[in-house]
Simulated scan of single mutants.
Amino acid sequence: MFALNAQSIAQTTPTGEAIAQAVVSFWALGPVKHCVLMRRGFNQVYELHFDNGRHTIARLSAERPRGEPNIAYETALLLHLQARGIPVAAPLAAGDGTFSLVLSLPEGPRALMLFDFLPGDPPGESLVDIEATGRGLAQLHTAAQDYAGPASRYVLDLPELLDASLERMLQAPTVDGPLAREFSALARDLHERFATLHGLTHVRCHGDCHGSNNFMSDGPHGTGEGRRVAAFFDFDDTGPGLLAYELSVYLWVLLPRSLETPTSAATQERWRRYLAGYTSVRTVPEVDLAAIAPCLAVRQFWVMGEYAGRIPVWGTQAMPTHWLRKQVPLMRAWMDMPLADGNIGGVPAAA
């Protein structure tokens, strides 16, 4: 038998039983009836049912390439939004008033947080729900304007989203010399593009509003017949940042991942309805609309940088070289994509 030291462990996955024991020791919510790992992605997420009927979600923060989790800011912002009447998965305080428990794991300390469980389903393909998601995000941004809590560790702007991501990618073993030069040239071109976009709007971003981090429900009485409400969760990537980037995340997830695949009429209509929902609450200045297309490429840089930073956990085949070679032409096509009046490529959306 050969014993590995703790420094050799990239990331462990505690069992649901272990997380339940930690939760019971810190949060005075009574015995846990059931706890199971829901998802292992950027973090490890667990679902808990308590004997008293309470239903919560626990998040065990994983090591992020950018550094420490943004817990103080995230917690304060969520409580601020909750106080303003915005539906969010709020963090639950322990008996001592704090919101996170540090677990000692082989790879080092990691923070565990507990959140309200949100019922419902993502907006999916429902145009009504997609529009409600855009409207809800705008309401969230408006409610966050007077936030005055702890500062964020991270700002969702080019230094964090683009420059830091490129640096991580250049260290990845699957990025060879030609790819490194192509990605570096693309990053320079993006900087030049943003240098022409003056006065971009900044908001307190959700950071990852791609349509699967909010659940839909019917609004309370008095909100209008058929009025749907979006409740938001997973604020792990929250921070002050570019409105154009925040809006681009939903379009980014809709777009085809191949230059040979045309953008469908259904995709065009979903984007138009999402933007219509947002602009029913808040105006989006022309300069921010112009910045959405280059922000699509910035978003892709950020995702690849996250993958590169997780190679010790996910492996090199999370971003193989043959896949990386397809990204530069795709990202260049995205950054030059005309977006007029909420229509992709200037093509009118379906009636």
Rank of each mutant, 00 (worst) to 15 (best):
S126T: 03
R59N: 10
A10P: 00
V36D: 14
R64F: 02
G41Q: 07
R135Q: 09
L118N: 00
A83N: 09
T56P: 00
D116K: 14
A90P: 12
G136I: 11
I57V: 13
E17Q: 10
E107A: 10
V128A: 14
A138E: 04
S61C: 13
N43R: 13
I71T: 09
P14R: 07
G53K: 10
R40T: 05
T142W: 14
A76W: 01
I86C: 07
G16N: 06
E107C: 01
A58E: 02
E74P: 04
P122H: 05
L78N: 06
T12L: 11
N52D: 15
F115S: 03
S25D: 12
P119V: 04
H80F: 11
A28E: 13
P91Q: 02
L60P: 06
G120E: 01
R39M: 12
H141D: 12
N5K: 03
G53H: 07
G124D: 02
R40D: 09
G67M: 03
H141V: 12
M38Q: 14
D116E: 14
R66S: 05
A22L: 12
G120T: 00
A76N: 06
G53W: 12
Q82E: 15
T12S: 15
V36R: 15
P122E: 01
R84P: 01
A18R: 15
F42T: 10
E47V: 07
T75M: 05
L4M: 13
Q7E: 15
I86D: 14
P106K: 09
Q11F: 04
G85Q: 15
L105C: 07
T12M: 13
D51G: 11
L105H: 01
Q7T: 06
F50R: 02
G53A: 07
I130M: 06
N43P: 13
L77C: 03
R39Q: 11
H55S: 07
A144G: 10
L48W: 01
E47T: 06
I19G: 10
H49C: 09
L105N: 02
G120H: 00
D121W: 04
L101S: 05
L60H: 04
L4D: 10
S104Y: 00
G53T: 09
Q7C: 10
P109V: 08
T133C: 05
E131Q: 13
E63F: 11
A93C: 15
P91R: 02
P122T: 01
T12F: 14
I19E: 14
L127G: 13
G120I: 00
Q44L: 15
G120P: 00
A89H: 03
A93N: 04
L81H: 01
P109E: 03
L78G: 04
K33V: 04
H34Y: 07
A22V: 05
A143V: 11
K33Y: 04
Y46W: 08
A20E: 04
A20D: 04
I57P: 12
L81V: 05
P91G: 01
P106H: 12
A10L: 03
